[in-house]
Design a protein around this nucleic acid. Structure first.
Lengths: 347, 347
DNA sequence: TTGGCAATCTGTAACGTTTCAGTATACTGG
DNA sequence: CCAGTATACTGAAACGTTACAGATTGCCAA
């Protein structure tokens, strides 16, 4: 046997990052044994196992991600796919923080995969799947018939959606009950005597657009109020557009006396529009708005708010993906948050 | 030669992701040749090179990240290290988008590495460096004497800081000129006849705290105005705290008639506090505030704003890190943004 | 002719991990 | 005492890539 001295036969020297080989050398075992001992394989003697684990802890052994990934295909990465144009502000950081909270004491890393308006939303997902860059994926801006969900379901890659789909396919999701939100909002406004209501909708095409619109409509007929159509804007429009069109709306004869808004940023614009039209919030019109951080009441105390917790959403989505990766049933990884009740300014 | 048939000798079948071996088989070359042809090595014949690259493009070859990483140590990852408690809202998503914009057409992925208040800020950085999880790092909340920067400089890992240090060590950074910001703000207020000014500072301990305070002080004496001390808050305090203490401040005899605020969220609280004290913005007191999205003017049109572009910051930071990784001089990768001028509400 | 050299190309080893197919030892029941 | 088997361990191969150290060919100068 021609046994040449190779570069690393003088292992366990000191400065280099320890590997299984280092551990094997230190314990006098084979790398196979060390590998199995570290993952509590049953065919390793109890004492050996403890010994290996002790040494590993002592010298701060951390498995090399590239090694694991190359051998097993497991990336220990989950990817959050984000639209870099639409996603409104604070939203994103909260979700990210929620996700990181959950994966903090797992080996998982979070990578952010962006896509822009010009691209097909399927592109980034296809990239992730084709290159095997992640073990799990989180997507938002979910549509009733979502090609991304369908694609990942076909390829068998675990994912979770922020928002539900409606394709008769089962997969993990987290969503706010926007049907309930819109309903609560309408009932609250009706309780204050408002009966000509307008809705600032979510982006047309997303699933929760439908939920919101339905909740709004159903509650309207329940309380016997009427809708003032306001289809010219959604929360995806710019501040300027929303503001202008709200002002137009509020100058009409049959202007609404109550508005339900699906997002805080849009609400700022709506209020500006209302005031542009010379009307006063709380007197001429009441506005109920979702918000994700507690800013609207600083803005105008007359605003009526419903809180949505995006940090929670991030956590739930991460939990769902990890659960699926871990072998749980996708159907058991779905969660729906109730919105808070409608909150007027308190003291 | 005992040449056993191994699992993958029947390569190039179709469904599997193509590797160098696949390309080698298809072109009839060795994997070494293919590898070098793809990176335009000079010792490969021009025609061979073109041929390999053509085939590679045709079948959509993408180098396996784990393979490259294992072999070379290059991760093709850059990490953004974030504090999950302090970082204020929209801030974060803008930076992320800025970063992703720059790395979009590079092989780099962005991973978000969080740390919480309870932890030593050095922890996540140490983790990244020790596990070799990234080729480059971006940190924020930079301090004059920043242990993280020092640590990474020692280890020789490329990084960029959002904000400058003051340790006599040179490294890439991007920063807003907060000295200029505070100065402009003071001069603007003085121009409106305000001469008893207070400052809502950045978090004590961060480098730009000093810049801001100095810019404020120097401009004060330049214009002959006086400072009303307001050291009880910084923009790291909660909305409630800022609001309460502003109200207290504004009820005192020697209350300021002008306030400079270092962050939009704090400004909301400041305004609330002003109004709690029964005073009117624009009449009793003027407020100049930095903001990163165009919301403050919707909030109160009397506010005077200075814009800070965090998306640009993200791009600059990413460019800086990539530049350093690519071998440029760290000293050449520093950039300082001028703040916008002070903007009153326009029509 | 021959030695040298440039131009192209190639096999092998190595990065760190897990899995497959064992091997060595001790113990069991007949 | 032996076959059979459970227990505890091990070497080699493989994942996909790059670097090192050649190998082969053709050409030119001496």
């Amino acid at each position: 046997m021609d046994r040449r001295i190779t570069k690393k036969d003088d292992d366990a020297s000191g400065k280099e990052r320890p590997t299984l080989k280092t551990l094997a050398f230190m314990t006098g075992l084979g790398v196979t044994t060390v590998s199995r001992a570290l993952k509590d394989a049953p065919e390793i003697g109890a004492e050996t196992r403890r010994r290996v684990q002790l040494v590993a802890k002592q010298i701060g052994y951390r498995p090399n991600r590239a090694g694991v990934r190359l051998r097993t295909g497991k990336t220990n990465v989950i990817s959050l796919v984000l639209n870099t144009e639409h996603e409104l502000m604070s939203f994103v950081s909260d979700i990210i923080y929620g996700v990181t909270e959950v994966i903090a004491d797992t080996p998982y890393h979070l990578i952010v995969t962006p896509y822009s308006r010009s691209q097909d939303p399927l592109d980034p997902v296809r990239y992730l799947v084709e290159t095997g860059s992640a073990d799990g994926v989180i997507i938002s801006r979910t549509q009733p018939n979502d090609p991304r969900a369908r694609y990942m379901l076909e390829r068998g890659i675990p994912f979770a959606t922020h928002g539900r789909t409606d394709m008769g396919l089962v997969h993990p999701y987290h969503d706010l009950d926007n049907y309930a939100f819109a309903g609560e909002a309408v009932r609250y406004l009706a309780g204050r005597g408002r009966n000509r209501l307008a809705l600032v909708t979510p982006p047309v095409g997303l699933t929760y657009y439908g939920h919101t619109v339905n909740g709004f409509a159903d509650a309207l007929s329940e309380v016997g109020a009427s809708e003032v159509p306001f289809n010219t804007v959604s929360i995806d429009h710019t501040i300027e557009q929303i503001r202008m069109r709200t002002a137009q709306l509020m100058r009409r004869d049959n202007r609404p006396d109550g508005i339900v808004s699906s997002a805080a940023a849009a609400t700022l614009a709506v209020v500006a529009g209302i005031e542009d039209a010379g009307l006063k919030l709380g007197r001429d019109v009441d506005v109920v708005s979702k918000q994700s951080s507690d800013l609207l009441h600083l803005f105008r105390r007359e605003l009526l708010v419903v809180n949505e917790n995006f940090r929670l959403a991030g956590s739930e989505l991460a939990r769902a993906v990890l659960g699926w990766i871990g072998g749980k049933e996708p159907g058991s990884l779905q969660s729906l948050s109730k919105p808070s009740e409608v909150l007027p300014y308190r003291g």
